[in-house]
Structure formats: C-alpha cells, structure tokens
Design a protein around this nucleic acid. Sequence first.
DNA 1: TATTGTTATACTCTATAACTATA
DNA 2: TATAGTTATAGAGTATAACAATA
Lengths: 149, 149
Amino acid sequence: MTGHSTSLASPPIDQTFLLSLLGYNCLQAYLKVAPPIKRLLAKYKLKPVEFTVLALVAENLQINQKRIGETINVSPPNLATLLDRMQENGLLERQRNPRDKRSHIVALTPQGQALYEKTRSSVANLERPASLSADEHDQLIHLLQKLFL
Amino acid sequence: MTGHSTSLASPPIDQTFLLSLLGYNCLQAYLKVAPPIKRLLAKYKLKPVEFTVLALVAENLQINQKRIGETINVSPPNLATLLDRMQENGLLERQRNPRDKRSHIVALTPQGQALYEKTRSSVANLERPASLSADEHDQLIHLLQKLFL
DNA sequence: TATTGTTATACTCTATAACTATA
DNA sequence: TATAGTTATAGAGTATAACAATA
C-alpha cells in the first residue's frame, strides 16, 4: 500500500516530448533489453562487448583489429586492452598478418569457439520480448538498421 | 587509393548473427543518432542527460527526484550529483515537499526554463534522419516504446 | 521499519596523446 | 608521410555501501 486514504495518486509522468525523440527511445529500449542479456553472459564471465567480439571473430576469418573496432564502435586503444583481456582468458589469439605486418589477424582459440557456440544459442533464446509479435520484432530490427547500416 | 593493383578488396564484414539481436541493433542505432545531438547540446553546455532532466521537470510540475530517476534510469546517488551540478549552474532548484518532507520537489529556474525552450526546438529539428520516411520514423518509435513502456 | 535523498567511493567505460612498427 | 596497433592516462559514467531525515 502506498500513500494514505486522502492522498492523491501520483499523476502519470508526462514525457511526451522526450518520447518523440529517436535517440531517447533507442536508449531507453536498449536499457530495457540489455540487463537480461548481461546477466546471462555474466554466468560465462563474459561482458556484452566481449560476446560481440566473439561473434564477429567467429564469423569473419582473417579479421583484423581495425575492422573489429570500426564495426562495433570501439576505439583502437580500448580495443587493444579488451583483446588483451580476452587473450589472457584464452578466448582468442592475435597473429601478425604476413601480407601487412602492421596489422594483426584475430582468431578464436578452440575454447573461444566453444564458448561462442554455447553462449550464442542462449543469447538467441532471449530474443523477441513478449511485448512484440514476430512481425513487429522483424520490422523493428529492419527500421533500426536503416539508421546505422 | 587503398591497396594495390593485385590486392583483393576487403570482404564485407559478416555480422549476420549480431544483426539479428535487438539489443545490438538498439545500441548501434543509438550510437549513430546520439553524436549530432550531443554536439548541438554542447553549444549550450548541456549533456544529453541534463537536457532530459530539463524536459522532464519543465513538463511535470511538482516532480520529485525519485520519479525523475525512475523515468530516466538514473540511480539516486547519481541523480543527486547531477542535480547538484544543474543547480550550481542555475538551471533548477530543489525545495522540500511540505506534504512529505523526505522528498524534494524539483523546479526549473527562469534561466532553466529559457534554456529548455531554446534547446527544445533545436533538438526537435534534428529528428528524423534522412534514411527514414516520416511513416517509418513514427513506426520505429512506436515499436521501440512497446519494448520499454 | 520503510522511504527519500545524500555522501563517499570504487569501478567501469570512454576519450586523448604520444609512441612503435610497418607501409 | 600515412596506417595498424599499443601504452599510459585522464575523464565521464555507473554502481555500491553507509548514512540522515522523515514517514
């Protein structure tokens, strides 16, 4: 029980203007969708970014750091330390590209590959919240990609 | 010119799986939409969160900190320091609620009100990126709100 | 006892500058 | 001279615990 017998109920919050803004809606939607995925990945001692890197490296042979960083919006210095950590955890390896010795080709270790396969299906199972039909889910993703692809 | 005459073009990145995930799409869309708004607000020495607070307080008389924090996903300690800063900048004031002296009612100062009105129209003008039709824009917002409202 | 808000602090994330090595 | 990546570090954002005042 909240309040007492003579109290007015809290008026609903008016966020009409904010709700008309694309950026606000994208962020609030992300903040709603992300926590369950975070909790799931935490069981495997993975952060969302790390899972993203696993996916990108698993599905792109010979990918280098520049392309990883561009794709997932992580700057070179921050990607370097992120990959350091994943490498220490035995998830991936870096080797010099013989065709251009400045760049490093990133590849998953067998453990990294195994972890990706395990977590991938779990993450996929969290897709499509109850509040969206299958059609709405697909439509939403299609529209979001028009923004950033 | 990139590469040399006999080099293969970089194969396009395969992010098929990631692009099927709602959370990934929301985040990437946000990361694309946010920077222009950030730059605009920076001219007024405002951060996006601060603008959000301005909007919420301007449109909700008698709002207290608990409801602000719940609505915009900011924890009580972090909201306290955020409001401290905005108060120091002369944008808002906090007064005890006479009906419940635990809570503080937040209200804009005339300067805060003026700043909100100025920035509000500028922010609104950044809405609807060229890649979306008016219908798509409205449809996208409608679907996002099904996720978090 | 529970709730609102504050303080202090730790932790994480992100951004910037300077550097090495290759091209 | 430009590019890929690294190191070090600063700054911003987020999370947690302990507390005071009020209900």
